[in-house]
Design a protein around this nucleic acid. Sequence first.
DNA 1: CGCCATTTTCATCATGTGTTGAATTATGAG
DNA 2: CTCATAATTCAACACATGATGAAAATGGCG
Lengths: 202, 202
Amino acid sequence: MTTRDPGRSNNRGRRPGAPDTRAEILASARALFATRGFSSTSVRSIAAAAGVDPSLVHHYFGTKDDLFVAALELPVDPRVALQPVMEGGLEGAGERLLRVFLSVWDDETARLSLLGLVRGVFEPSGRQLLRDGLIGVVLGPIGPALGVDEPQRRVSLVASQVIGLVMLRYVLEVEPLASMDGEVLVATYAPTLQRYLADPLP
Amino acid sequence: MTTRDPGRSNNRGRRPGAPDTRAEILASARALFATRGFSSTSVRSIAAAAGVDPSLVHHYFGTKDDLFVAALELPVDPRVALQPVMEGGLEGAGERLLRVFLSVWDDETARLSLLGLVRGVFEPSGRQLLRDGLIGVVLGPIGPALGVDEPQRRVSLVASQVIGLVMLRYVLEVEPLASMDGEVLVATYAPTLQRYLADPLP
DNA sequence: CGCCATTTTCATCATGTGTTGAATTATGAG
DNA sequence: CTCATAATTCAACACATGATGAAAATGGCG
């Protein structure tokens, strides 16, 4: 957005003032990675969105892959956020889990990173990132911590519902899910999750 | 894979025999689009996989976009496949819907097309394809046909669970979901879908 | 002020992309 | 056999991409 003064013949060299250009680049990268995914986002488009030369992107962040992981720095530590879910016991665990997810995703600043991550997972070579990442780190500990039988199976059932919700509500923004009230969502989905977590499995 | 005879000095010109090269190209395109998505799959890689010059791809299918839609020709007409779901009444509709989905997705030949479609949906500019496609055409008629209240809302709830299942089981191939028996899946998920379709909503 | 480190652009490279047009060879109809 | 047509590759284009190295401008420290 910010174009340089075209009056001067040469725009080269340091810019006056103290603009945090590095942060602007990172913000642009986050936004673009989140909406277009990794491979469809060019370094040049990020630089253009930040009003900056592409070289500057490399100067600050190195390679494009480096920039991606820098843009993905999660604003939440999942293990911390999910602690109340695991501590509260089996009763109501589904509802608590859902509340944590919704509160994280409905935070505007966190959303961009999360969308970038989700998009990255579905690009080639990003598949086991989710398998080992989301399932392993985010949801993985929940099953054992709640002391249920067949924890892996139960957790993947829960994941299938949560991921579907995320896809439709946040990634594809399908109505009426996208603009549905959080409390209604909790009331709708909590029983499902609770069943997957606690009820006897076939 | 099929390389030409390197003994001859020039490989140009028509190939002897009657190989259905067009079909081979289409098969390669399906496989690559399904695993890597649209933008990460190059015309050249498709040509290479079919053992063919890139020009031939254009000769047969025109532009890359044309090839994509050609590769996406669904082997099933969703409206036909879903007819029994709508005709059977509300009772057991969730289970019937699930059975249709699983039978289509577990067919090896259909799977590649479907994976390509799903991947395409999550690429930039492919978003409203799902919104209008899957929701509108595939699942859309189900709600009204079953005569339930708030059909859009119910259908999007169902979609959120089905899509999550598809993502984990077929796209990311997360265990134990990926190798779970179909009947077990039906027993597990049918109650959820039935609840979304028929139970009172909050 | 003088100087060094930082920030920024410019010019450029090597590579990969989608696409086109001409050239070459085999097939099949008459 | 002849010859038009279809099948196939070669060579090249115009362009976008990720990346690099050098040059220029500014800020802050002495």
